[in-house]
Design a protein around this nucleic acid. Structure first.
Ligand SMILES: [Mn+2]
Ligand SMILES: [Mn+2]
Ligand SMILES: [Zn+2]
Ligand SMILES: [Zn+2]
Lengths: 135, 135
DNA sequence: TTTATAGTTTATAATAATTCTAAAGTAAAA
DNA sequence: TTTTACTTTAGAATTATTATAAACTATAAA
């Protein structure tokens, strides 16, 4: 991912490209595979990966701006921390309870044959399949 | 649901039948339809329904004991509060984002035709389908 | 280029959900 | 009944998250 693409992510999120934000954006988006993370986890990884410090508030703010702009998704996982996902396509997840790890499942790998109709006056927005794993 | 069944729920959860616990158990289990709730919601409803007071800690402790005993399930819902479910059968949910309400879907109403195999060394424990609703 | 402006980072405080603690109360055993 | 172990409770502590406000910095104006 080029520097210009990183800047694009920031601009399209309404964020000026400060050094903290550029580092966060590079860390999140300059990768091949999906990245699932919590804010705390991201903070730890950034501390290892880069030299300068990030206030937690900056990480929260930046991640939320990316989410609002549609560059990140939130995933519901058991537990108290919020999980985020760099894969913003419609997809599903395995969840490994032992390691607390999410694994992507491409939408094409799940075929649903039968589903109930939405309650009166409501429509189906999307269907999420969550597969819990054990050893 | 008979008084004796309420006592059974308590005993099988390792709980003595105190008046607080009996009230909580009656409120949760003496009903026809599934009840989805948060601790805060349960607290409010108990305050309306019954005369005496419940310390929040008592509600947390009792609900967690029921969960550990398998009389309640936890459901993952977007947001910061934990949701519980009196329906302990394998089933799925609609989630109405407008009202923050969960609606049960019987397992038989969902048929999945294709699903990926579990990652190496792991097995599928269960599959949860979560259908988000819009107006 | 300076200078002004609006936006940003940061440490720290505040809030919200949950869990812990320890003293006073109660159910069940002896 | 008396004793013992368990329970309730108010409040403190903890954890994740959000808010605040003072010191910075990117960008727009001059
Ligand atoms: Mn969650
Ligand atoms: Mn949740
Ligand atoms: Zn994902
Ligand atoms: Zn349910």
């Amino acid at each position: 991912m080029k520097k210009e693409d990183i800047f694009k992510k920031l601009r399209s999120s309404g964020l000026r490209p400060t050094k903290q934000r550029v580092e966060i954006a590079k860390f999140l988006f300059d990768r091949d595979k999906t990245f699932h993370f919590t804010i705390e986890g991201l903070d730890n990884l950034l501390a290892k990966k880069t030299t300068f410090k990030f206030a937690l508030a900056t990480i929260y703010n930046t991640v939320h701006a990316f989410k609002k702009a549609g560059h990140l998704n939130e995933v519901d996982v058991r537990g108290k921390k919020t999980y985020f996902d760099t894969n913003i396509t419609r997809h599903h997840h395995f969840y490994d309870n032992e390691t607390s790890e999410l694994i992507d499942i491409d939408a094409s790998e799940v075929v649903i044959q039968k589903i109930p109709k939405a309650p009166n006056g409501k429509k189906i927005k999307n269907v999420e399949v969550f597969i819990n794993l054990k050893n």
